[in-house]
Write a protein that binds this DNA or RNA. Structure first.
Lengths: 216, 216
DNA sequence: AAACCCGCTTTGTGATCACAAAGTATGCAT
DNA sequence: ATGCATACTTTGTGATCACAAAGCGGGTTT
């Protein structure tokens, strides 16, 4: 037999490991906008050759997580106000739909989990941990949207998050939060009540409110 | 001086040429769903080594234009009914928004151009040219959406088109068209009248109608 | 007749190298 | 002191190669 001698230990290709690590850093605001990086530098950090470093970088470029000069150098993007507005509008469109599709499947266990995540977010705020806050905030949204059973839409939403990652950190610096975003409470309340219009509005507001500050 | 000795002749990197050609084939339904391809095969066809072939393939995988087995083999995706429904919903969401943003900027020159494209579409239908039909149909949509001045949204819409490419060909085979899709006429009419609700409905219908047939 | 095992072939992965273009700093001339 | 040309360094691109794993037959055994 022995089809899979070590099912728990998936070796994970080198380029994939590099990709995933960089993706997390970018999505959760670990890297500031405009930060440049070199293929050799990436390879050195992950102890791999240029080949997998290049593949990971190009994949992130394809997803809009990194931008590329005409000479092939990569860096995190510095988004214009117009682009931020577009991405916020995309978040609103897609995530409202995802929430709406998740609503009929949202049982009590899911709502309790969302409330748990909300207390965790409050933790990150108290600790002034920008990266932790962004990651946990996105986890709140992802947990809800997973219930929509719509992987293609969720992938699109995550791609938008990825493009906004470095910018979200800059945002966090400006609006020095003191408490949990209250739209999260509204989302949970609408889920409990089965209130679809209320849910749509709450999600749209939560997704839009922060980004508005960056457009000016 | 001579900053740019040959401004018209941009050499275009090998991997980019491969990428663009494959992307066109996929988006316009030149390749059937489930079609497998090898990196060495791609390299051979374009007379390049495996390196740029691999980059082009992985970029297309990142955009959802190709799917990949766990062992790294690539092929055009065979979409499930659920996934087609999701992608159709995404088209509706994004393209309705793009059309709505294009409306206030749509002048007579644009409308005339759209009508020209419509006659061209009728041509492709008469000629029974599936690939030509799909390409020209998407050109109609792209021409309209370009006026929205929303590059991030347009890129998202095109990514959805790309994912649906191989499936669109299969669709074309089923609904043996005899005449121009009448929603295209409705779109032009709504643009002329400045009728935003009508435009939204026409775009949503045009985008949704064909795909419905594939879900069953 | 069907299942299985073992060989060869095909194929993706990653490292290394040569090369060209872009970027950067140095030094000279005005 | 400033502008510019030139040499050097850094960096991405693409080709080639070694390797391991996956796919694919054919042949044997039960």
């Amino acid at each position: 037999m022995l089809i899979n001698p070590r099912p728990s230990e998936i070796p994970a290709a080198a380029h994939d490991r590099v990709y995933r690590t960089l993706r997390s850093r970018i999505m959760y605001g670990d890297i500031a906008p405009g930060q440049a990086m070199t293929l050799r530098g990436i390879g050195e950090e992950f102890e791999v050759s240029m080949t997998p470093a290049r593949e990971a970088a190009r994949r992130l470029v394809a997803e809009g997580a990194l931008s590329m000069t005409s000479s092939g150098r990569v860096s995190t993007p510095e988004l214009s106000g117009e682009r931020i507005e577009e991405l916020a509008a995309l978040r609103a469109l897609i995530e409202v739909e995802l929430a709406s599709r998740a609503l009929p499947r949202a049982h009590m266990a899911l709502i309790e989990r969302l409330q748990m995540i909300n207390t965790s977010i409050a933790d990150q705020i108290a600790r002034q941990d920008a990266v932790g806050y962004i990651r946990t905030n996105l986890e709140f949204h992802r947990t809800l949207y997973l219930r929509a059973q719509a992987p293609a839409m969720l992938a699109m939403a995550e791609q938008v998050w990825l493009q906004l990652g470095p910018t979200m950190r800059a945002l966090y610096g400006r609006l020095r939060r003191k408490e949990l975003p209250h739209f999260h409470r509204l989302i949970v309340a609408a889920l409990k009540a089965g209130d679809e219009p209320g849910l749509r509005l709450a999600v749209r507001s939560d997704v839009t409110q922060g980004l508005k500050m960056l457009v000016r």
